[in-house]
């Protein structure tokens, strides 16, 4: 029940942001909409409530946003240079990288980050959820997957403190 109330509050805040200038009609309709969405999604998301009160996690999340935006920009410039280079210097391949994250939301965020930052694309997550199969644009022939592993480790350390 507590989970559902938390979800309801989150969806309601989102609804109020979407209908930004406050007015009572939207506020009333929002209760119905947020209630319906909570009813649909309550078995998809199970927020761990004890995590919401810990200030540390918010600070790490703030740091994570900046880390992510920096990496994203770097990766984009990297890909843009490769696209515009007439020789098309890419060495693509699918590599396997290991992760230590356990929670589902942590792995989801890691996969999303890998796709948006760092010249890699998350193709699949292993059943036992210890490996990510990652398509990388620049696999060096000797150190297969090492560059991707470095970036995974970088995000992992931060995500561990936010979601685990």
């Amino acid at each position: 029940m507590k989970n559902k109330i938390t979800l309801f509050i989150i969806w309601y805040i989102l609804w109020m942001c979407l209908t930004w200038p406050f007015d009572p009609e939207h506020a009333i309709v929002g209760i119905a909409v947020a209630g319906f969405i909570t009813f649909i999604t309550s078995d998809l998301f199970t927020p761990r409530l004890e995590h919401f009160g810990q200030i540390n996690r918010y600070l790490w999340f703030f740091y994570f946003v900046f880390l992510f935006l920096g990496e994203c920009l770097k990766a984009n410039i990297n890909v843009a240079i490769r696209v515009l280079n007439p020789k098309l210097p890419i060495h693509p391949g699918i590599v396997k990288v290991k992760t230590d994250l356990k929670s589902e939301i942590g792995i989801t965020f890691l996969g999303n980050c890998l796709t948006l930052a760092s010249g890699t694309l998350c193709v699949d997550v292993d059943q036992e959820r210890r490996f990510l199969y990652v398509h990388s644009l620049d696999v060096k022939s000797q150190d297969t997957g090492e560059s991707a592993q470095l970036i995974v480790n970088k995000f992992e350390k931060v995500l561990e403190r936010i979601f685990e």
Binding site: N76, V83, L88, P92, T115, L116, G119, T120, H135, L137
Partner: peptide, 21 residues
């Protein structure tokens, strides 16, 4: 990039990264 890259996966890379940013 979507036009120049050779296969599905590389194309997805360029289209997601650059288009999203």
């Amino acid at each position: 990039g979507l036009i120049r890259f050779p296969d599905v996966y590389s194309r997805l890379q360029s289209s997601t990264k650059c288009a999203v940013l």
